[in-house]
Protein backbone atom coordinates (compact mmCIF):
# COMPACT_ATOMS: atom_id res chain seq x y z
CA UNK A 1 0.00 0.00 0.00
CA UNK A 2 1.27 3.40 -0.96
CA UNK A 3 2.56 4.59 2.40
CA UNK A 4 -0.89 5.14 3.76
CA UNK A 5 -1.26 2.22 6.14
CA UNK A 6 1.03 1.83 9.09
CA UNK A 7 1.19 0.50 12.63
CA UNK A 8 2.57 3.11 14.99
CA UNK A 9 3.60 3.16 18.61
CA UNK A 10 1.83 5.47 21.04
CA UNK A 11 4.54 7.85 22.25
CA UNK A 12 2.36 9.44 24.89
CA UNK A 13 -1.13 10.32 26.01
CA UNK A 14 -1.62 13.62 27.81
CA UNK A 15 -4.72 14.90 29.51
CA UNK A 16 -4.76 18.58 28.58
CA UNK A 17 -7.57 19.57 30.95
CA UNK A 18 -10.92 18.20 32.13
CA UNK A 19 -12.14 17.89 28.58
CA UNK A 20 -9.33 17.29 26.11
CA UNK A 21 -6.60 14.74 25.47
CA UNK A 22 -3.51 14.74 23.28
CA UNK A 23 -2.19 11.52 21.85
CA UNK A 24 1.21 11.30 20.16
CA UNK A 25 2.27 8.58 17.73
CA UNK A 26 5.83 7.66 16.81
CA UNK A 27 5.38 8.12 13.05
CA UNK A 28 8.20 10.00 11.29
CA UNK A 29 6.99 9.33 7.73
CA UNK A 30 3.47 10.44 8.59
CA UNK A 31 4.80 13.53 10.38
CA UNK A 32 6.76 14.47 7.29
CA UNK A 33 3.85 14.01 4.88
CA UNK A 34 0.85 15.40 6.73
CA UNK A 35 -0.57 18.76 5.72
CA UNK A 36 -2.84 20.98 7.84
CA UNK A 37 -6.48 19.89 7.58
CA UNK A 38 -5.65 16.30 6.66
CA UNK A 39 -6.69 13.52 8.98
CA UNK A 40 -5.52 10.14 10.12
CA UNK A 41 -7.94 7.21 10.33
CA UNK A 42 -7.27 5.18 13.45
CA UNK A 43 -8.39 1.63 14.17
CA UNK A 44 -9.29 2.09 17.81
CA UNK A 45 -10.17 -1.53 18.59
CA UNK A 46 -8.51 -4.82 17.74
CA UNK A 47 -11.95 -6.44 17.62
CA UNK A 48 -15.20 -5.56 15.87
CA UNK A 49 -16.49 -3.00 18.38
CA UNK A 50 -16.53 -0.35 17.22
CA UNK A 51 -16.23 -1.58 13.67
CA UNK A 52 -15.12 1.55 11.86
CA UNK A 53 -11.91 3.47 12.18
CA UNK A 54 -12.15 6.95 13.65
CA UNK A 55 -10.87 10.05 11.82
CA UNK A 56 -8.81 12.68 13.69
CA UNK A 57 -7.28 15.82 12.28
CA UNK A 58 -3.61 16.12 12.97
CA UNK A 59 -2.84 18.66 15.68
CA UNK A 60 0.91 18.66 15.53
CA UNK A 61 3.72 16.97 13.61
CA UNK A 62 7.15 17.63 15.09
CA UNK A 63 10.13 15.50 16.05
CA UNK A 64 8.90 12.49 14.11
CA UNK A 65 5.70 12.41 16.13
CA UNK A 66 2.15 12.95 14.99
CA UNK A 67 -0.24 14.30 17.58
CA UNK A 68 -4.01 14.37 17.68
CA UNK A 69 -6.20 16.41 19.97
CA UNK A 70 -9.56 15.04 21.03
CA UNK A 71 -12.46 15.00 23.44
CA UNK A 72 -13.49 11.47 24.43
CA UNK A 73 -17.21 11.67 23.74
CA UNK A 74 -17.96 8.51 21.75
CA UNK A 75 -17.15 4.82 21.79
CA UNK A 76 -14.05 5.26 19.64
CA UNK A 77 -12.44 8.29 21.28
CA UNK A 78 -13.08 6.86 24.76
CA UNK A 79 -11.09 3.77 23.79
CA UNK A 80 -8.25 6.01 22.59
CA UNK A 81 -8.29 7.88 25.88
CA UNK A 82 -7.50 4.52 27.49
CA UNK A 83 -4.36 3.97 25.41
CA UNK A 84 -1.00 3.53 27.06
CA UNK A 85 2.44 4.56 25.96
CA UNK A 86 3.87 1.78 23.82
CA UNK A 87 0.48 0.55 22.52
CA UNK A 88 0.36 -0.05 18.78
CA UNK A 89 -2.28 1.57 16.61
CA UNK A 90 -3.16 0.74 12.99
CA UNK A 91 -3.45 4.02 11.11
CA UNK A 92 -4.40 5.05 7.57
CA UNK A 93 -3.13 8.43 6.54
CA UNK A 94 -2.53 11.19 5.92
CA UNK A 95 -5.90 11.37 4.15
CA UNK A 96 -8.07 13.99 2.51
CA UNK A 97 -7.71 17.38 0.93
CA UNK A 98 -5.71 19.76 3.16
CA UNK A 99 -6.20 23.49 3.68
CA UNK A 100 -4.48 25.47 0.94
CA UNK A 101 -1.54 27.53 2.12
CA UNK A 102 -2.20 31.28 2.10
CA UNK A 103 -0.82 32.90 -1.04
CA UNK A 104 1.84 35.58 -0.70
CA UNK A 105 -0.60 38.48 -1.07
CA UNK A 106 -2.74 37.37 1.88
CA UNK A 107 -2.37 39.91 4.68
CA UNK A 108 -4.68 38.47 7.31
CA UNK A 109 -5.08 34.78 8.03
CA UNK A 110 -8.19 34.13 10.11
CA UNK A 111 -8.57 30.78 11.83
CA UNK A 112 -12.10 30.24 13.11
CA UNK A 113 -12.54 27.26 15.39
CA UNK A 114 -15.22 25.75 17.57
CA UNK A 115 -14.21 23.43 20.40
CA UNK A 116 -12.05 20.54 19.30
CA UNK A 117 -12.10 22.03 15.78
CA UNK A 118 -9.04 24.05 16.81
CA UNK A 119 -6.85 20.97 16.22
CA UNK A 120 -5.76 21.50 12.59
CA UNK A 121 -4.88 25.14 13.20
CA UNK A 122 -2.01 24.32 15.56
CA UNK A 123 -0.28 22.36 12.79
CA UNK A 124 -1.27 25.04 10.30
CA UNK A 125 0.21 27.87 12.39
CA UNK A 126 3.39 25.82 12.86
CA UNK A 127 3.73 25.56 9.09
CA UNK A 128 3.11 29.22 8.26
CA UNK A 129 5.19 30.84 10.99
CA UNK A 130 7.24 32.57 8.30
CA UNK A 131 4.27 33.93 6.37
CA UNK A 132 4.12 37.69 6.81
CA UNK A 133 0.33 37.89 7.19
CA UNK A 134 -1.25 38.85 10.50
CA UNK A 135 -2.74 35.72 12.06
CA UNK A 136 -5.76 35.62 14.29
CA UNK A 137 -7.64 32.77 15.89
CA UNK A 138 -11.31 33.26 16.69
CA UNK A 139 -12.13 30.50 19.08
CA UNK A 140 -15.50 29.50 20.48
CA UNK A 141 -16.22 26.96 23.18
CA UNK A 142 -18.99 25.94 25.54
CA UNK A 143 -17.19 27.18 28.67
CA UNK A 144 -13.76 28.12 29.95
CA UNK A 145 -13.00 24.43 30.50
CA UNK A 146 -13.63 23.81 26.79
CA UNK A 147 -11.11 26.39 25.66
CA UNK A 148 -7.76 24.96 24.91
CA UNK A 149 -4.67 26.64 26.43
CA UNK A 150 -3.76 29.12 23.76
CA UNK A 151 -0.15 29.92 24.68
CA UNK A 152 1.12 27.58 21.94
CA UNK A 153 -0.69 29.70 19.39
CA UNK A 154 0.84 32.84 20.89
CA UNK A 155 4.29 31.33 20.33
CA UNK A 156 3.40 31.08 16.65
CA UNK A 157 2.43 34.78 16.64
CA UNK A 158 -1.27 33.99 16.37
CA UNK A 159 -3.46 36.47 18.20
CA UNK A 160 -6.28 34.54 19.85
CA UNK A 161 -9.76 35.84 20.71
CA UNK A 162 -12.17 33.72 22.70
CA UNK A 163 -15.94 33.51 23.02
CA UNK A 164 -17.74 31.10 25.33
CA UNK A 165 -21.43 30.17 25.41
CA UNK A 166 -21.61 30.82 29.18
CA UNK A 167 -19.25 33.80 29.23
CA UNK A 168 -16.79 32.07 31.61
CA UNK A 169 -13.92 33.09 29.31
CA UNK A 170 -13.57 35.84 26.73
CA UNK A 171 -16.69 37.34 25.16
CA UNK A 172 -20.03 35.74 26.05
CA UNK A 173 -21.79 34.12 23.09
CA UNK A 174 -20.94 32.34 19.88
CA UNK A 175 -17.74 32.71 17.90
CA UNK A 176 -19.65 34.98 15.53
CA UNK A 177 -19.39 37.65 18.28
CA UNK A 178 -15.71 37.84 17.24
CA UNK A 179 -16.25 38.39 13.51
CA UNK A 180 -15.46 42.10 14.06
CA UNK A 181 -11.79 41.09 14.24
CA UNK A 182 -11.85 40.08 10.59
CA UNK A 183 -10.47 42.60 8.10
CA UNK A 184 -13.04 43.00 5.37
CA UNK A 185 -10.57 42.93 2.50
CA UNK A 186 -9.69 40.77 -0.49
CA UNK A 187 -6.34 40.11 1.21
CA UNK A 188 -8.07 38.28 4.08
CA UNK A 189 -8.35 34.49 4.00
CA UNK A 190 -10.56 32.49 6.37
CA UNK A 191 -9.96 28.94 7.53
CA UNK A 192 -12.74 27.39 9.62
CA UNK A 193 -13.23 24.14 11.50
CA UNK A 194 -15.95 23.32 14.00
CA UNK A 195 -19.59 22.37 14.41
CA UNK A 196 -21.84 22.72 11.37
CA UNK A 197 -23.94 25.69 12.63
CA UNK A 198 -20.70 27.58 13.22
CA UNK A 199 -19.46 26.80 9.71
CA UNK A 200 -22.82 27.88 8.29
CA UNK A 201 -22.44 31.22 10.09
CA UNK A 202 -18.88 31.60 8.78
CA UNK A 203 -19.95 30.76 5.21
CA UNK A 204 -22.85 33.25 5.39
CA UNK A 205 -20.57 35.97 6.75
CA UNK A 206 -17.92 35.33 4.09
CA UNK A 207 -20.55 35.41 1.34
CA UNK A 208 -22.06 38.65 2.64
CA UNK A 209 -18.67 40.38 2.91
CA UNK A 210 -17.13 38.85 -0.21
CA UNK A 211 -14.36 37.08 1.71
CA UNK A 212 -12.48 34.01 0.53
CA UNK A 213 -11.96 30.98 2.68
CA UNK A 214 -12.10 27.29 3.34
CA UNK A 215 -13.81 25.09 5.91
CA UNK A 216 -13.16 21.59 7.18
CA UNK A 217 -16.33 19.49 7.31
CA UNK A 218 -17.31 16.53 9.43
CA UNK A 219 -19.56 13.56 8.67
CA UNK A 220 -19.91 9.96 9.83
CA UNK A 221 -17.18 8.14 7.95
CA UNK A 222 -16.51 4.52 7.14
CA UNK A 223 -13.61 3.92 4.75
CA UNK A 224 -11.91 7.34 4.78
CA UNK A 225 -10.69 6.66 1.25
CA UNK A 226 -13.56 7.81 -0.94
CA UNK A 227 -14.66 4.24 -1.61
CA UNK A 228 -17.95 3.83 0.24
CA UNK A 229 -19.49 7.23 -0.55
CA UNK A 230 -20.98 7.11 2.94
CA UNK A 231 -19.81 10.54 4.08
CA UNK A 232 -21.08 12.51 1.08
CA UNK A 233 -22.47 15.98 1.71
CA UNK A 234 -24.31 18.29 -0.69
CA UNK A 235 -22.09 20.95 -2.30
CA UNK A 236 -22.51 23.34 -5.19
CA UNK A 237 -20.81 20.60 -7.30
CA UNK A 238 -23.30 17.90 -6.21
CA UNK A 239 -22.56 15.32 -3.54
CA UNK A 240 -18.92 15.17 -2.51
CA UNK A 241 -17.20 12.90 -0.01
CA UNK A 242 -15.92 14.54 3.15
CA UNK A 243 -13.09 11.99 3.41
CA UNK A 244 -11.68 12.22 -0.11
CA UNK A 245 -13.00 15.35 -1.87
CA UNK A 246 -12.72 17.09 1.53
CA UNK A 247 -12.58 17.38 4.46
CA UNK A 248 -11.56 20.89 3.37
CA UNK A 249 -13.94 22.64 0.97
CA UNK A 250 -14.06 26.15 -0.41
CA UNK A 251 -16.52 28.15 1.71
CA UNK A 252 -18.45 29.17 -1.38
CA UNK A 253 -19.03 25.54 -2.41
CA UNK A 254 -20.68 24.51 0.84
CA UNK A 255 -24.42 24.03 1.03
CA UNK A 256 -26.13 24.14 4.40
CA UNK A 257 -29.62 22.71 4.05
Amino acid sequence: MKNIQGVYKVAGLTRVNDIYYRLALEAPELARLVKPGQFIHIKVSAGLEPLFRRPFSVYRAVGGKVEIFFEPVGKGSRLLAGCKKGDLLDVLGPLGRPFSLPSRDVRQVVFIAGGVGVAPFMLFSDQIVKHKAAKVLLYGGRSKAHTFPLNEFKKNAVKAFVATDDGSAGVPGRVSELFGRIDIAPTTFIYACGPRPMLAAVAAFAREKGLKGEASMEEVMACGLGACLGCSIPTSQGYQTVCHDGPVFDLQDLVFP
Partner: peptide, 30 residues
Protein backbone atom coordinates in the same frame (compact mmCIF):
# COMPACT_ATOMS: atom_id res chain seq x y z
CA UNK B 1 -19.82 -0.16 -7.58
CA UNK B 2 -23.14 -0.87 -9.29
CA UNK B 3 -23.77 1.17 -12.44
CA UNK B 4 -27.21 2.24 -13.64
CA UNK B 5 -28.39 3.37 -17.08
CA UNK B 6 -28.51 7.04 -16.13
CA UNK B 7 -26.37 8.86 -13.58
CA UNK B 8 -27.71 8.78 -10.03
CA UNK B 9 -26.71 11.34 -7.44
CA UNK B 10 -27.43 9.09 -4.47
CA UNK B 11 -29.31 9.69 -1.24
CA UNK B 12 -29.06 12.66 1.11
CA UNK B 13 -27.01 12.22 4.32
CA UNK B 14 -26.81 10.45 6.66
CA UNK B 15 -25.99 7.64 4.29
CA UNK B 16 -24.40 5.27 6.77
CA UNK B 17 -24.46 4.40 10.42
CA UNK B 18 -22.42 2.04 12.49
CA UNK B 19 -24.23 -0.77 14.31
CA UNK B 20 -22.96 -3.61 16.50
CA UNK B 21 -20.36 -5.41 14.33
CA UNK B 22 -21.96 -3.92 11.25
CA UNK B 23 -23.25 -0.95 9.36
CA UNK B 24 -26.44 0.23 7.74
CA UNK B 25 -26.12 2.00 4.43
CA UNK B 26 -28.44 3.78 2.06
CA UNK B 27 -26.01 5.31 -0.42
CA UNK B 28 -28.53 5.22 -3.25
CA UNK B 29 -26.23 3.75 -5.95
CA UNK B 30 -24.48 7.07 -6.61
Amino acid sequence: KTVTLNAQQGNPPKRICETPAGMINAIGIE
